[in-house]
Design a binder for these strands. Structure first.
Lengths: 127, 127
DNA sequence: ATAAATGCAAACGCTTTGCGAGTGC
DNA sequence: GCACTCGCAAAGCGTTTGCATTTAT
């Protein structure tokens, strides 16, 4: 019952690929165009929002006015360079049992979290 | 040399007030209009961006597409209810010495961070 | 006169949606 | 024929900016 969907498929492959883990819709669009020759931004957008509803990817807000998406497996945090804007993944979860302490202090049951460090990357520090 | 600036002053008072610590530009605008009778959104916007440059307030991104601002003193984190969207401040910094561990794992020197928990607030859990 | 604060309106950037056309099944 | 994907274009929405006006010094 499903028709071939080259654009959506390509978006999925991009997320599945190991090279990059954090994508803006724009970057995805560019990559899809590069791979398929042509693709519409809105099609990429719909593929992405579909995947988000499925739960296979989720939004990451880097505070730069653009929405980013990341594959759901392997939760982790990010750190962004104040200078060049580069974003790097912070291996491991820095917040192991913070949720219980948050629960006692606020009464909220923590379901998820998103942490963004900012700092200066080695390259920028070297300048 | 300075002219009276009722709008900017009002914005500053709002941040100085203890009642609310997290403001969207929209909310600030509404509050200023309520207090002064009239004020332009762009004027509030300019007051806010000025304060941000001064360093007296800083942006907080709650991932809802709007920019929020918060007074700089007393760094802390936030938790937002998945259900009703309510945002509550998490007392204390949950990340005491995470920065050194981040530094060893990524090489970045951490200058700041922003953490957003999401969860379910007591009221919504009661439903 | 000068410089600052403000209001108004339009531009902008990115996200989101409506709709019609194309196409496997 | 049907359901689904796609492309195109426009609408939204919040942020940002240009410009003219007002006003205290």
């Amino acid at each position: 019952m499903a028709r071939p969907s080259p654009v959506s498929d390509q978006v999925r492959s991009l997320f599945a690929a190991e090279q990059k883990h954090l994508w803006s819709i724009d970057e995805l669009h560019e990559a899809v165009v590069g791979a398929l020759g042509a693709a519409d931004y809105s099609t990429v957008f719909r593929a992405v929002t579909g995947m988000e509803k499925e739960g296979s990817i989720h939004r990451i807000d880097l505070g730069d006015g653009k929405v980013h998406y990341e594959i759901s497996e392997g939760h982790h945090e990010h750190i962004r360079c104040d200078d060049c804007g580069r974003v790097v993944e912070v291996p491991g979860c820095v917040l192991e049992d913070a949720s219980t302490s948050v629960r006692t202090s606020t009464g909220f049951v923590v379901t998820s979290h998103q942490l963004l460090f900012t700092g200066v990357c080695p390259e920028c520090a070297a300048k």
